[in-house]
Amino acid sequence: MTAPLLSVNDLKVHFEIGRRGLFGGARHVLKAVDGVSFDLRPGETLGLVGESGCGKSTLGRAILRLLPLQSGRTVWLGRDLARLAPREMREMRREMQIIFQDPLASLNPRMTAGEIIAEPLVTFRPELKRAEVKQRVQAMMAKVGLLPNQINRYPHEFSGGQCQRIGIARAIINEPRLIVCDEPVSALDVSIQAQIINLLMDLQAEMGLSLIFISHNLAVVRHISHRVMVLYLGKVMEIADRDSLYANPLHPYTQALNSAVPVPDPDIERAKPRVVLKGDLPSPLNPPSGCPFRTRCPRATQVCAECMPALERAGADHMVACHHAAMPDRP
């Protein structure tokens, strides 16, 4: 097994919520990400799945150090990112990039597609001549499926799918090794989603990229990921290679998520057994004691309220955090 590209160890991101005016005020701590660990290998796609408030986007940003960490380590090829000086970290940013959910909002409306795509390039290679920058930008546009002659157009003149391609071109122009994809297809039409997913998979194969693919859509994550991590209220519930996670989900939350996704087939969809969870997600500001999922879990017992189960090995590449993971499926 190759050495990991990125190694995340007991990562915690906490936010202080509440007004902190000139004269102070009440404060709460939101544990958006609470003790997440994983390794990411070169060329691998890790899917992050979970519902709103599970901390998946926060985790993605914290890995890129776009957010301050509470504690924990993110080690990039042996170097602890948290220890880098701001200037060193800026240098590091050419290696790791991000793609956003809202394609239009992630592009500056006052800049042309060419300027947007060129920005990371000219930031790191200010010595490049204009003609050379332009030539590289146009090559990149062709690579992501945009017409190179559209270089002077503005974001609002493109459709959502095309804007997402601009965002992808911006992310890969410095040939990074890691791209965090934060819900990159959720805002797109169904027919366009497939185009973008295929593009990302092609680019990965061509450039040897590692991807962290954040999505609430289990079907999309299953399609693109090698390994999948399921998060709930900032904690890892289950992490496993794709096939064993979908074929044999061990955590009751993963099982519920799986059965909640509507299948586009009327016969299967109407006949399938459903685990409909009770209630809503608890507020992340005031999470339940012990296992955060216990308030909605069909298997919860006394022990679940008392302590958070540890993430334990349950297969070759399968870890699960549940006191009752061994229980038979769907009681």
Binding site: V190, I192, Q193, R222, V261, P264
Partner: peptide, 23 residues
Amino acid sequence: LLKSMPRLDEHGVTRLQTIGGQP
């Protein structure tokens, strides 16, 4: 539309079929 949707019940992962162009 049907073919371009990734599905949870698909068997083995193949390349998604797409509808070209823009909406």
